[in-house]
Design a protein around this nucleic acid. Structure first.
Length: 858
RNA sequence: GCCGAAGUGGCGGAAUUGGCAGACGCGCGGGAUUCAAAAUCCCGUCCUGGCAACAGGGUGAGGGUUCGAGUCCCUCCUUCGGCACCA
């Protein structure tokens, strides 16, 4: 027993990953190994950014390190390639969970947040990422949100110049002459990029706050799944719609996955069409509609207004007033849930009023229905039931006339369209359209738009699905608006000197339930005395969580600057972000908002690039071992702390990269972790004598043999190429192959081992540093040049080719690498098995693909 | 319903982008080492038939283009993600 123990203890050279990892993490921190040098023009720069996390009480889950490891590999690789790398980290720390916890327990969100950040920072550091921790930021830090408020003030103090298609300071807004002071103020306020409006919002009674459209999923809140109703309220809005065109166009400048670009394009939702004016028969009024199909005007048999349309009150016939009022009432009470999930059936009411179709002077009835939205286009449509599914359904239900005006090319379909059997929404040729008959759809659209314009009854028009950004929340734990409401009803912004406007400490975090935010309870904070002695009240809404994450990548450039949000020199040096890695769940929300702010800052000259993120990669979700989404209730959550304790950070990092393609969704496997851990063990034993802890005697300063040298050069090339293309799983597999080869050699050339250690370093940095040191190097390998490979050494001397007869493999031949086609052909035809397969027939064709195969066709 | 991505061994996944399908890892089977086990090392492992050499089949299904298709084209099925009265 004692002897056995002695024997165990004498093995002092085993792979002690826990000790090694701690040692190097301290080394990196103490030496500030990964500090980035601002404005170092002697090296090319590279900015690698992770989507910063919300510091939740659950801590890190295994999904976080996936993206972080990928970006860290690129950061470390680029350093070795001679780049000046900026790789920062921080916390998106405002948010609902800390506030809900505060409501429940009375613990200040500040305390909860600090605790959670400390824990998650510890976890993040335990993975050995090469962040420049001196640049750490938190959105909840007043030194940070001072500048979030500053950007908001810039928005508040800017307007959008339509002719130049860019934002400008509000002082330069041309204000019409002859306005009263009151009117002048209103005009200016109406042009600000941050403005107040009374809007029908998504009110969530359970959460006591409004939500952005994007935060409502299927009629319930995205977080928590609580019911959401529509309610008119005073809210802060940002004019993101002014940037709709640029948000679509500039996607051409960035290297993002096609699917994300598509998602954003669809979200902005550009439609080109025409506005058309319909005169009413009994009133001196016109109804303007937006349509993408002006070519179907002759088929417009009725009109529909949104229930909220302002003209409804005025034009409803006396005998319809009661029914219409009731309908509008019902529509107003409908929640989003009712409108989406349950409203499959069309409803509506006729107003008893009529309009005139401008193309044929037909008198057509006007209805209201909630299938027309007040918030899109003009809130009114012309209905062409023959060529629009929704109008078709409505007309069928209420027995309204259906006139086909577009004939499809397919004769079968054309017949059905003419007989009003089906609704056809595609392109075709015009029918029942007077002098326009026979025109193809596209042509007709142009002609009729011109025709309408000449008669002053319409014009070309573009609409977007994108709405202005609802920017206020009735919460405590968010950035306070730097805004004052005066007694005489003016809204004024604080000056830059007044920033930051800090969140006051309060006792009661509960929303009041009426929509009055918690900050309304902060007595000493709420009231302000202005220089002229009058009183003003602070804005009690706070900003949404997206605010802080809209610009954090800029603050990393200059995180300690107290005089400016960032130094322009540093911005010019570091921007744009070269690589941005994060989850696909932010495809429309965060990425669209951040691009909007960036473009705004670009217009004002604070940043020098039109787009913030050059290349974007989305990491896929990691599922539980059962292939299900990880969740506490399923009990399939993998705790990273435990994985690191059992196998080490290097194994954790390596496994997450080895699982499969970065973008793919893939299930966790503990046995898979063990697999990559065995690989590291094997490498360790190939270099270190486990008995002595010294370099293995087999590792010697000798020239590598040809196969080893070839494999080494192939591996160096492959790992480099794979890192450049984010194929980390195949890079690891290549290093496994080289390690397997080396472990079988009796004498291991030191130079080969060293290069393997260097190319492993970005992926498994701790073991690499340790081996590098034990191989006799004093300094960190973080800035060692990436090994070069020799193209000549990669080439095989002899190549095995498959020989096919009629596409079926019959045998394999080995030829010299420089054999020409004739030689290969002769060799192939001389082969016994090939001869047997040909059976004396004359080859019709012989296809030789060098270094691949030979195919003989008979 | 519309849009997007993807379907390859028992499992995670490779395949120079039209050229030997299944690299690498897991799991499994056999062997070496050991008193025994763990660890490690070696051999095998797509399916079917055969002791074997070998033969045949095989990348969700069906069709097509090609000397040659996991890869390109058409139709369909399944899974995942997004949008969902946006005129």
């Amino acid at each position: 027993m004692i002897i056995w123990c002695k024997w165990m203890c004498s093995k002092k050279g085993t792979y002690e990953f826990n000790e090694i990892e701690k040692k190097w993490q301290h080394f990196w921190a103490d030496n500030k190994t990964f500090r980035s040098e601002d404005c170092d023009t002697s090296r090319p720069k590279y900015y690698v950014l992770d989507m910063f996390p919300y510091p939740s009480g659950q801590g890190l889950h295994v999904g976080h390190p996936e993206g972080y490891t990928a970006s860290d590999i690129v950061a470390r690789y680029k350093r070795m390639k001679g780049f000046n790398v900026l790789h920062p980290f921080g916390w998106d720390a405002f948010g609902l969970p800390a506030e809900q916890y505060a409501v429940k327990t009375g613990t200040s969100p500040e305390i909860t947040t600090r605790k959670n950040i400390d824990n998650m920072r510890r976890q993040t550091k335990s993975l050995g990422f090469s962040y420049d921790w001196d640049r750490e930021v938190s959105t909840t830090d007043p030194h940070y949100y001072k500048w979030t408020q500053w950007i908001f003030l810039k928005l508040f103090n800017s307007y959008f110049d339509e002719t130049e298609n860019k934002a400008k300071p509000i002082e330069r807004l041309p204000v019409p002459d002859g306005l009263s002071e009151e009117e002048r103020r209103k005009y200016i306020d109406d042009n600000r990029l941050a403005y107040e409006a009374e809007v029908a919002v998504n009110w969530c009674p359970e959460l006591g706050t409004v939500l952005a459209n994007e935060e409502v999923v299927g009629g319930v809140s995205e977080r928590g799944g609580h019911p959401v109703i529509r309610k008119p309220m005073r809210q802060w809005m940002l004019r993101i719609t002014k940037y709709a065109e640029r948000l679509i166009d500039d996607l051409a400048q960035v290297d993002w996955p096609y699917s994300i670009k598509k998602l954003q394009t669809d979200w902005v939702g550009k439609s080109i069409g025409a506005d058309v004016d319909f005169k009413l028969t009994d009133f001196d009024e016109t109804i303007r509609v937006f349509t993408t199909r002006p070519d179907t005007l002759f088929g417009a048999t009725y009109m529909v207004l949104a229930p909220e349309h302002p003209l409804v009150d005025k034009i409803t016939a006396p005998d319809k007033i009661h029914a219409v009022a009731e309908y509008r009432d019902q529509a107003a009470r409908k929640s989003d849930l009712d409108r989406t999930d349950l409203a499959k059936d069309k409803t509506g009411q006729p107003l008893g009023a009529f309009a005139v179709n401008p193309v044929n002077d037909e008198k057509i009835p006007i209805w209201i229905s909630d299938y027309v939205l007040i918030s899109y286009g003009t809130g009114a449509i012309m209905a062409v039931p023959a060529h629009d599914d929704r109008d078709f359904e409505f007309a069928t239900k209420f027995n309204l006339p259906i006139i086909p005006v577009v004939e499809p090319d397919d004769p079968e379909q054309a017949k059905l369209v003419r007989q009003v059997e089906i609704c056809f929404t595609g392109d075709g040729k015009a029918i029942n359209s007077a002098q326009f008959d026979g025109l193809p759809t596209q042509q007709f659209k142009e002609n009729i738009t011109k025709w309408l314009a000449e008669r002053d009854q319409g014009s070309k028009s573009v609409n977007y699905k994108l709405r202005d950004w609802l920017f206020s929340r009735q919460r405590y734990w968010g950035e306070p608006f730097p805004i004052l409401h005066t007694q005489d009803g003016r809204v004024i912004g604080l000056t830059e000197d007044d920033l930051p406007l800090e969140l006051p400490h309060i006792e009661n975090y509960k929303p009041t339930g009426t929509g009055e935010p918690p900050l309304a309870n902060a007595a000493g904070w709420l009231e302000v005395t202005l220089p002229d002695g009058t009183k003003a009240r602070r804005e009690t809404n706070t900003m949404p969580q997206w605010a802080g994450s809209c610009w954090y990548y800029l603050r990393y450039l200059d995180p300690l600057n107290d005089r400016r949000a960032w130094n322009p020199e540093k911005e010019k040096y570091w921007m744009p972000v070269d690589l941005y890695i994060g989850g696909a769940e932010h495809a429309v929300l965060h990425l669209l908002y951040a691009r909007f702010w960036h473009k705004f800052l670009y217009d004002l000259g604070y940043v020098t690039t039109a787009e913030p993120f050059k290349k974007l990669i989305n990491q896929g979700m990691i599922l539980g071992e059962d292939g299900q989404k990880m969740s506490k209730s399923r009990g399939n959550v993998i705790n990273p702390d435990k994985v690191i304790a059992d196998y080490g950070a290097d194994s954790m990092r390596l496994y997450e990269m080895f699982m499969g393609p970065l973008e793919a969704m893939k299930p966790w496997s503990m046995q898979g972790v063990e697999g990559v851990h065995r690989f590291l063990q094997k490498l360790w034993r190939a270099v270190i004598d486990e008995e002595t802890g010294l370099l293995d005697p087999a590792v010697r300063d000798v020239q590598a043999d040809e196969p080893t040298l070839r494999l080494l050069n192939q591996t160096v090339k492959k790992v480099g190429d794979d890192i450049e293309t984010f194929g980390f799983n195949t890079a690891i597999s290549a290093m496994m192959i080289l390690t397997n080869h080396l472990s079988r050699l009796d004498v291991k050339p030191k130079s080969v081992i060293e290069k393997l250690v260097l190319i492993l370093a970005p992926l498994a940095p701790h073991i690499a540093e340790e081996l590098w040191q034990r191989l006799g190097h004093d300094d960190t390998l973080a800035y060692e040049p990436w090994p070069a490979y020799d193209e000549q050494l990669i080439k095989e001397k002899e190549i095995e080719l498959a020989v096919q007869v009629n596409g079926k493999i019959k045998d394999r031949i080995v030829v010299s690498a420089d054999a020409d086609e004739q030689q290969i052909k002769a060799e192939a035809l001389a082969n016994e098995k090939v001869a047997a397969a040909i059976a004396g027939k004359e080859p019709r064709k012989v296809i030789v693909i060098k270094s691949r195969l030979v195919n003989i066709v008979v």
